[in-house]
Computed example of a mutant assay.
Amino acid sequence: MYLKKPLWSEGIIPKGSSGSEQEQPSTAVGDLVNSLTQQRVYREVTLALRSGLRDVRAEFSFLRVRGLRGLLKFLRSVAETDSTINLFSQTQSLPELQVVPVLFQHSLKDSGDEIVRNLDHIFGVEPLKITSPSTDSEVSLALRVLEGCCLLHPDSAVLAHQHKAIQVLMNILPTRGVIEQGACLDALISIMLDSSANQMDFEAFHGIEEVAELIRDKQVDENLRLKCGEFLLLLIGHVNGRDGPPLATVHEDIRRLLGEKSASLIWAASQFGSTLDPEQRLTALHIQARRVIESLDLY
């Protein structure tokens, strides 16, 4: 969704810019231009959502992948301005345009849901509807779209909770490949931000234990172990911002699972970067995660 300049704005000089009094539009004209522009952008936002969601609901994985790629590109474009973020948030109040439910009903659906329960289709006139299973690429893209939705629109985390997001993601984490596992960890952080319900589910499904098992295993891909380190740093530094429920025991859990020295390093390193710009914070996060891995490998 990269917008072209609307035709009706040609020759219009914004309020406050230089120019003769005759060149500057009246307040009424300026308001009309702004209104037309906002309506146009809203139409493009809804069109992009409808097009992407139509493909994500498809029976074939290659179509769903196409839809997910379109949605991911759309979300990246939305994130560029506050006005488009607000428009996207407005669309997510409309059930037919909500992204998160569609992700869990299709791309992130358990393949076990496709088991045929009876043979009625053999004796009836209605053909059996077959849906191709989600590929690794599809799952990875769906997790990235889920992450983007929750970061841009916090109420999407509520929708995710309604679809048992933590349970679904905790099933993905130990069973998929490295790329999907990394995307799963990022998605977990995004759906737990400011969401006590999802944090409680994470604790109930022993999420810390699953992540600790991956980061301790030296046979696991190094990039995934680093991603686990980053996850723990973000969990302590950003998600778990208080000592009360639902993650009241997270410090003790990490100490029990990873040892005193590694737990102390994670706690200290998680406090980094409050005065850094986003790029510097990302670099610092990566460096601190590597130190956590090194501390584990020494013992």
Rank of each mutant, 00 (worst) to 15 (best):
K227C: 06
R216T: 15
L234R: 15
K227F: 04
I179P: 09
L224W: 02
E180R: 09
G207L: 00
L214A: 06
I191R: 02
D221Y: 07
S262E: 02
E203C: 05
H251Q: 10
D243E: 10
K227L: 01
L247Y: 03
E209F: 00
A263C: 03
E230F: 04
D221K: 05
G241T: 14
D221C: 12
P245Y: 02
L226Y: 06
R255M: 11
A204I: 06
L193T: 08
A183T: 07
Q181A: 12
E230R: 12
D194Y: 12
S195K: 04
L233V: 14
S262L: 00
D194C: 10
K227R: 11
N198I: 01
L234M: 15
S195V: 06
K261Y: 04
N223V: 11
I208E: 00
K227Y: 04
P245A: 09
R242E: 13
R255A: 09
E209I: 00
S190L: 02
G241C: 13
R225M: 00
L188W: 03
C228S: 10
E252T: 15
D217T: 10
C228P: 13
N223H: 07
L233K: 07
A263Q: 01
I236M: 12
A263Y: 01
E209G: 03
C184V: 09
A212C: 14
E213R: 08
R242V: 03
I179E: 13
D201S: 10
L226K: 11
E260I: 04
S190E: 00
G207F: 00
A248V: 08
M192T: 09
H251F: 14
V239C: 15
V220T: 15
A248P: 01
C228Q: 05
L234Q: 15
L193Y: 08
I179Q: 13
L185D: 06
K227A: 13
L235N: 14
I208H: 04
V239R: 12
E209L: 00
N240G: 14
D217C: 12
S264K: 05
G244R: 04
R225K: 04
R255K: 10
K261E: 10
E230M: 15
S264W: 01
L188K: 04
G237F: 12
D186Y: 02
R225E: 03
M200N: 07
E213N: 08
L234N: 15
I215T: 14
S264H: 03
C184I: 06
F205I: 08
A248D: 11
